[in-house]
Amino acid sequence: MRKQNVLTILGIALSFVIAIGGWAVTSMLIDLKSDALLSAGGLTPVYAPAATSSGHTKLDDNPNIMGEDISGERSIFSAIEISRILSNWESRANEQPHEPMEGQITMEQAIAIGQKGLSYFYDQGIIPAQLLEYSKTDAYLCQRQPSGGAGKMLSPDYSYWGLSFSGENGSVRFSINAMTGQIWKADLGINSSETVLTEAVKKIKAEQMLDVFTAYLGLTGSGSYSTDGLTASESFADGMLYAVARSISLNSISEGEINTNRYSMAVYLSAHSPTIG
């Protein structure tokens, strides 16, 4: 009986030892794992492998007037390929920055295209002169990677250079397809209290922006055309592509006697029909 009681007490004591000792061991294992994680390092290749381009190459006879600085072979895409790429761009997938892949334009080329695009659009009267006075240039190359595809690069076709030229009066942002070197999207953000600039912006109509943009891209064979004054769109390739121009006054902010007007304007290619009216 006495041995029985001693064993019972030992058993219960052992239970507590297991409970507390188990936690101590687990805690130690967690710390070891954490220490290993927090002292880890790695090497990542700069140029991640990617699927090959689906576009085909062509000598530089592109109707794009901006092409002289990127001479050589450049990809061109069919309407369906462009539509697929645009769908990816318009998705909410995360941006994955990367170094230029084979066949893609470099940052220098992208900046050159952006600068010439600014001049071209200014010449065509859809960018006010004040936006040419930028002080900072930013550029990055990225892809939008669908969820579940983290770490795996898409075809180079899907990459775009995001360029921004920022200045006192606002900024211009271009999305340039990294294979074709074409500007497929341009956002103009104007933030100015200058009456001259404001008046200049007000004179820019969506229809005018659309005409300039389609001419820049050399889009032909137009389908339907629609406009409500603020937004204009034109479809191409049997409705697979849309060229859209949008000019929207966002708001005005008054600080003392200074009245700041903010405008947002955009021209872009889209795989989807915009809402107009």
Partner: peptide, 9 residues
């Protein structure tokens, strides 16, 4: 061709 990373405390 490579970018290195380390976790340092």
């Amino acid at each position: 061709n490579t970018v290195a990373d380390r976790i340092q405390t």
